[in-house]
Nucleic acid binder design. Structure first.
Length: 272
DNA sequence: TTGTGTTTTATTGCCTCC
DNA sequence: GGAGGCAATAAAACACAA
């Protein structure tokens, strides 16, 4: 198994000067000198040097190599239990896998990035379905409202017609009941229920929830502190390797830290 | 086989924390 | 100031259709 992490990259040439492992050229060192110096290739000054077969025969250039499935499996398992690496664990893993500690660290870094990307996707779908549900609830309530209003109008008209016919004999105009009038006057309906602005739809969501509508949860995986539907999509937790606590905890209730995260990593997980 | 898109590994630069 | 984290990115490796 190739264990050193540097590689030679002809495409990254600058004029005729070819560099190996830019990580050790200035800036922060990508691996310590003990790890790298013994394996570092000399600079090449020409293409002849670059493609010197003798060199490759005696020292196979380290190209970027994929980790074996066993290595990845072990790394994944380790990531599942704890997504950050303490130095000791990094060294142990590196020894166990026959990798440079730097490679293990890089793998965890990239793995966290992948997890975050996936989590953002999940959160997006979650928020979208929550919004769609709220919107559909609101729309159906709006429909009901219109229906009831037209019913009230019809009944008011009927009542008025009835009163007119019963009041036909002169001198018998009964006093109107102000309470009843207000209840049945369709003109005043807006006093009973003020219209909801479109932009208020989301914020009014909590008042229109029913059994099937999104509810608040306090223990959901998410990247954001935010709303989640009580009926979560099935795919939300179906990936064993991505079974980390998500950060999308409910929007109204203070959230708790995910079990796998250290306190110093809260920034990454989106908690404050 | 080859062109192209995706995934994985690695680097760089900047930021924060101690 | 050093160590370690993250975002952005490069580039190799891989997958796959044509």
């Amino acid at each position: 198994m190739e264990s050193n992490s540097f590689f030679f990259d002809p495409s990254a040439s600058h004029g005729n000067m070819f560099f190996l492992n830019p990580a050790v050229q200035g800036g922060r060192s990508m691996m310590n000198m003990e790890e790298s110096s013994s394996k570092r290739r000399p600079f090449f000054c020409s293409h002849e040097d670059l493609y010197d077969d003798d060199y490759y025969d005696e020292q196979t250039p380290d190209k970027k190599r994929r980790l074996t499935t066993q290595q990845v499996h072990l790394l994944e398992k380790s990531f599942e239990t704890e997504n950050k690496l303490e130095p000791e664990r990094k060294t142990q893993l590196a020894k166990k896998l026959g990798l440079q500690p730097r490679q293990v660290a890089v793998w965890f870094q990239n793995r966290r990035a992948r997890w975050k990307t996936k989590q953002l996707e999940r959160d997006f779908h979650l928020l979208k379905s929550t919004y769609d549900q709220l919107l559909s609830n609101y729309d159906s309530i709006l429909k009901d409202n219109h229906l009831l209003r037209s019913e009230v109008t019809t009944l008011a008209e009927k009542l008025q017609a009835k009163e007119e016919t019963s009041n036909e004999p002169p001198g018998q105009v009964p006093e109107a009941n102000p309470h009843q009038q207000q209840q049945l006057d369709p003109v005043n309906m807006n006093q009973i229920e003020p219209p909801i602005k479109t932009e208020d739809r989301l914020s009014s969501g909590s008042t229109v929830l029913d059994e099937d509508a999104p509810q608040l949860l306090d223990c959901c995986d998410s990247y954001f502190p935010s709303i989640v539907p009580i009926h979560q999509p099935e795919e939300h937790n179906n990936n064993a390797s991505d079974n980390h606590q998500s950060c999308l905890v409910d929007v109204f209730v203070p959230t708790t830290s995910p079990p796998h995260c250290h306190s110093e990593s809260l920034g990454f997980w989106g908690w404050t």
